[in-house]
Design a protein around this nucleic acid. Structure first.
Lengths: 206, 206
DNA sequence: GTCTATAACGGGATAGAC
DNA sequence: GTCTATCCCGTTATAGAC
């Protein structure tokens, strides 16, 4: 052991970084214990299995984010604007680290088959439901189905930034800057609010 | 061999389905050859490795989509609306099968580290560049950096639908219907066009 | 709690008969 | 082109000493 950080936390730190960059299946316990500079068997001692480790890594990050989301939603009062609601949802996420933890969140959001039960149903669905209710008050003319679609479009837009964040500057000749988080949140909120406010036509089978 | 479909195509069909639902790492060659009802060694005969198989599976679907995208972009004339441009980009994608091929496309779009070279740079960047140029003419007041961000928000929104498509009805009590593709395309285009048209404020370091 | 050593297994890939 | 059999490696997980 090199630093004074407990073994369990060293494993969590290394795992979340590697899971984020390489994916859950592609990351072996050996990769994790090597990066964390702990013994291989420590993973199965502190966590019971790789699967439990994955759950622990995710829960450690999602729970504080969701707590802040609900706090900020409560803080903006009874009749917030769409922009305020979206900011309450997004800002706790984008305060996290783009190198280590945001890629992990991206993985979680883009693997429904793997995580819909252990993440969406357990950690996310109640929060989404709260925000959906508030958004419905802010956009009373939007039909329920359209609201759901737009929520998913929005979550997808954000998920993509989580997944691609670190390499966005490279594929856009430096035009996409991820260092200014306040600006990034405002950009996202403006775009998504524009989408939520777009006219919703009735869709038939044409 | 049960049907008359050539072995090579049987492998591609089974692989794209399994890659889409389970992911690339989680799908073994044994899974694929069992589903395709072909011999294990056939994969290494027709393709050289699992990695080459992955590339072949992706290229088979992406290339026709991109050809149609450019055809439809050409077909809408010199000064198309934002809605027309977005429809030209999205419609060839959403004509594909939500059970087999769209989940695969979702995987590809949400794994930048794995696919930025073999997919984005090879198959996608030229097409995105064409659409970015046309969009810039349709939205002359939008700064270049904002354009890039909004393109990525849009691609993310769509990617999310590709990844989550099959289970969206389940998590929304049936409100999200993916069977009517025309309606889905129109919904997405309306949302994204609203986002692209949103006012873009200048972002400082506040 | 932490280590070494190893079990038990499944993975990709290939040799060689047909 | 297609098959069987097998090699060789990396994986998760655990047993047992310290």
């Amino acid at each position: 052991m090199i630093a004074s950080i407990p073994t369990k936390d060293r494993i969590l730190d290394a795992a979340e970084k590697l899971f984020g960059t390489d994916g859950f299946e592609a990351t072996s316990l050996r990769d994790i214990t090597t990066a964390a500079q702990v013994n291989l068997a420590a993973v199965n001692y502190h966590f019971q299995s790789k699967d439990s480790l994955i759950e622990a890594v995710i829960a450690r990050r999602i729970e504080p984010v969701n707590r802040k989301r609900l706090e900020r939603l409560d803080a903006i009062g009874e009749n917030p604007t769409v922009e305020q609601i979206l900011t309450a949802y997004l800002s706790p996420l984008f305060e996290l680290d783009f190198e280590a933890v945001l890629p992990l969140m991206g993985r979680v959001h883009s693997n429904p088959e793997q995580f819909v039960d252990r993440v969406y149903r357990r950690h996310l669905s109640a929060v989404v439901e709260r925000f959906r209710t508030v958004l419905r008050r802010a956009l009373p003319d939007l039909p329920d189905d359209e609201m759901w679609w737009r929520l998913h479009f929005s979550i997808g837009a954000i998920t993509h930034v989580l997944c691609w964040g670190r390499i966005l500057p490279a594929v856009t000749d430096g035009l996409c800057d991820i260092s200014d988080r306040g600006a990034l949140i405002r950009r996202a909120v403006q775009f998504l609010a524009g989408g939520f406010r777009a006219a919703a036509t009735v869709h038939g089978n044409t």
